[in-house]
Design a protein around this nucleic acid. Structure first.
Lengths: 269, 269
DNA sequence: AAACAACGGTTCAATATATGAACCAGCCGA
DNA sequence: TCGGCTGGTTCATATATTGAACCGTTGTTT
């Protein structure tokens, strides 16, 4: 890996649980040498991406990331284009809702929204969603660019006893997703969590991300599933429109079929 | 410069005017080799800091910057702690107000707010404020850490015919700022612009940034200057409090003196 | 108070890594 | 068809990165 890549790994160490990190701690987390980590941090600090707290001398993200975020938002106002819909989705379903975006071959968390209805909620605090183990990731594999499955093949990490790690089961999940229009993860990433996702499309007409609802497993019933899927389809249409895209007709048909109960199918001509 | 630093320079190329840049354009802007720039962009893309638009193959800031910004805001909610005050300041003065933060030896723009009162406004679209040529920069030199003047000495860029570029004039400006508690720039960075700034302090008790009002020169009168200074002092107190700091007593005294008209001084014992 | 450990930061020889000229392939307009 | 532009790739050269050992400081333990 290039030294640039290694330096950028340091940036990704900062998260909600650990927003300020000392030099030694950074060395421990990355396995890097102290001098190397120090030089990286110097470079990052020179560009304002990190800064040192004057008192503790530990490092935290710097003000430049705010600048960059503002420009990113101006360039691709996807986050703002998804937030209101996501709020409605979380309120309507009573669960935690996520929007992810595909960038290159990785699925990034864009924004999330928790419902206040239940005291138990699903809280997922990651920046990249594994392709093979999350509903959003499987949506990307099912509706995204071709080469994505090869990328997933190389990183079939086991997260829980339920994680599907064979290519056969993964292909089956993709087939089912393409058929029904919804992808799912039954505790394959976080135990006791059931997620359903629908794909999102942008102005290029291609898969751009996914919207998902993560439900606590004990609350998950056939009734809630159908309600969630209905809301997800609506949310997908709305966010895709905000992003300049539309839901493909074939996906609309897939949704319609999988949301129509069998007895109504028989009644139809 | 380290390769990490050079890679991060690429990041800073993206701005409002040019949010998407092609590989060749990046090479032109930086003078770097095509292969080098390409490898840097690959590294930046792998971490999600930039992404490629699928259609034009040009590069833009990626979704990871949003993640980082969220964590930064959570860690140091300075921007949010300054925004409401800045809005009031802009409304009260009828001018454009800025808040800058000192990170290392650079003064970064944190947020700004325009007034809608006049059709002509000062719009400053930079990410770093020069130490020697802006009111915010001179505030940093006057109230910030010791070594800052040495940094400024090395980069006395000329921006307008009014830019003060001698160390003598710069020292005079610093002395006057320490005496009055307000720094100023009379068109030294942008022509026809008069700026006044007051320092900000955070939980460390040290200088943390500045709040400034940029006025169109033709509107600038002794009356408006006094009003602006009064508002600036109030804004500085409020933002410093939001950041966990307080305005030092000696600065309060300096403000009080420079806001008291001479005839009242004579009347006092 | 002395000893100790952990911290951030610095140095310098060894070497792994970045570099860029040249090259390829695809696209567009003339 | 040509020429110029684009994004992307290769490989010998040489430069920038690396990490063990070091220093000074801080705060804790004996």
């Amino acid at each position: 890996m290039s030294s640039v890549g290694k330096a950028l790994e340091l940036l990704m160490l900062f998260n909600d649980a650990q927003p300020e990190i000392g030099l030694s701690q950074i060395c421990r987390l990355t396995g890097k040498d102290k001098a190397t980590a120090y030089r990286y941090l110097q470079a990052l600090e020179n560009s304002g991406l990190v800064e040192q707290t004057p008192l503790t001398r530990s490092y935290r993200l710097g003000p430049a990331v705010l600048q960059l975020a503002r420009i990113r938002e101006m360039t691709v106002p996807r986050k703002s284009g998804a937030e209101s819909t996501l709020r409605e989705l979380a309120d309507a379903t009573g669960e935690t809702a996520h929007v992810t975006v595909l960038s290159g071959t990785a699925v990034f968390a864009l924004t999330s929204c928790e419902s206040h209805r239940h005291s138990t909620r699903v809280i997922i605090d990651v920046q990249t969603f594994p392709l093979h183990a999350t509903a959003s990731g499987i949506a990307a594999l099912s509706f995204g660019p071709e080469g994505l499955l090869d990328v997933a093949k190389d990183t079939l990490t086991v997260f829980t006893p339920n994680t599907a790690t064979t290519m056969k089961s993964l292909r089956a999940a993709i087939d089912e997703t393409r058929r029904s229009g919804f992808s799912r993860s039954n505790g394959g990433f976080e135990s006791d969590t059931r997620s359903i996702a629908a794909p999102l499309f942008d102005q290029s007409g291609l898969f751009a991300g996914a919207v998902s609802v993560a439900s606590v497993a004990t609350r998950f019933t056939p009734e809630s599933e159908k309600m969630i899927k209905t809301r997800l389809a609506a949310a997908s249409r709305q966010i895709s429109r905000n992003w300049g895209g539309t839901v493909p007709d074939e996906l609309e048909r897939a949704w319609q079929q999988s949301l129509t109960p069998p007895h109504e199918l028989e009644a139809a001509p």
